[in-house]
């Protein structure tokens, strides 16, 4: 394998593994910036994964190659619906954010398998036929060297995820909606006195996290696992949560962290094809994202980096 194709292999597998993390961590960034801690990303991804797989299996013959894309949207919509539970519990019913998020994680896998069993009469779906696969980006793929490394045989969802990152960064820091959303995560009382609807902003934050994590789960299922079972989503949601923190609650930071974690994950899988890497036990790559997150939290981050009112219930008195 020459150096160029080696690099192309690493880049494309990094992108494949990063895409679900980027999308999901963006959701986490929105939820936490509005003041709602969401450790239920894992559960929401699970919902996104199984709904998209069911859609894909049911409609692949009708939509052809567009199926995974529509499936991703379906996963995102069901992710949003599922996240309503978390929103309602934490925003209206003052539930502890961690417990409520844990409920999402406890609920999603059995719910998914229950439905799969009810529909397919076994604990695991068949494999999908229409998955995201690998794409050549038109135009960019023809650039010498760079085209081959970055834009040939690459993951289209990953490039979309990067574009969405930039869009969501712009919304969060440059628009009125973003300013208001962040204000409810920083000081909900101040926001309230200024006539901002804290509950509405927090709903927007949580529903965005549901949408994005659902999307992330759907992309994972339709580009990596290819089917749904109880062990489809194991840890990706928590890794996305780690990316939120490593990325300092900022969309761009979360994206870069996700790319890094995706890189570590892909090394643990394609490592044996790479000279030098093959000798390192895969366990180091597997635990790297989690160890790094702890180290980063210990060394570099004070609590001041998280939105000040993240995880604090807002109770309007009347």
């Amino acid at each position: 394998m020459n150096f160029e194709s080696l690099l192309a292999l690493i880049v494309s597998s990094t992108l494949v593994y990063s895409a679900p993390l980027i999308l999901t961590s963006l959701g986490g960034v929105y939820s936490e910036n509005s003041g709602i801690v969401n450790i239920g990303l894992e559960g929401i991804m699970t919902v996104g994964a199984f709904t998209s797989i069911i859609f894909n299996l049911t409609f692949a013959h009708a939509f052809g190659s567009a199926t995974p894309w529509i499936g991703a949207l379906v996963g995102a919509i069901f992710g949003s619906i599922f996240s309503l539970l978390h929103a309602f519990a934490t925003i209206n019913l003052r539930a502890d954010h961690i417990i409520s998020g844990t409920v999402l994680n406890l609920l999603a896998p059995p719910l998914g398998v229950f439905l799969i069993k009810a529909i397919y009469e076994k604990g695991q779906t068949p494999n999908i036929t229409a998955n995201f696969g690998y794409t050549n980006i038109p135009g960019l793929a023809n650039i010498p060297v760079i085209g081959k490394i970055f834009f040939t045989n690459t993951s289209a969802p990953a490039w979309w995820a990067i574009i969405i990152t930039i869009f969501l960064w712009w919304v969060l820091y440059k628009t009125r909606l973003g300013l208001r959303l962040r204000s409810t995560g920083e000081n909900p009382q101040a926001a309230d006195t200024l006539g901002i609807n804290v509950y509405k902003m927090r709903y927007i934050g949580v529903l965005t996290s549901g949408f994005m994590a659902g999307l992330g789960g759907a992309v994972f299922a339709q580009s990596i696992s290819g089917n749904f079972s109880i062990s489809t989503i194991v840890g990706q949601g928590f890794m996305a949560l780690a990316a939120v923190i490593f990325g300092k609650w900022n969309p761009i930071g979360a994206m870069l962290s996700s790319l890094f974690f995706g890189f570590a994950q892909s090394l643990s899988i394609i490592g044996n094809q790479l000279p030098g890497i093959a000798k390192i036990p895969t366990v180091y790559m597997q635990i790297a994202p989690y160890v790094i997150t702890i180290v980063v939290l210990v060394l570099f981050l004070g609590k001041s980096v998280a939105p000040a009112a993240d995880g604090v219930n807002y109770i309007k008195s009347k």
């Binding site: 300013l179 208001r180 962040r182 204000s183 920083e186 000081n187 009382q189 101040a190 926001a191 006195t193 200024l194 006539g195 901002i196 001041s304 939105p307 000040a308």
Partner: peptide
């Protein structure tokens, strides 16, 4: 009632 990580300007215009 101020958001400490926001700038002075952001705090003033917030909500308006």
């Amino acid at each position: 009632m101020l958001a400490h990580s926001f700038t002075v300007l952001e705090n003033i215009i917030l909500g308006h």
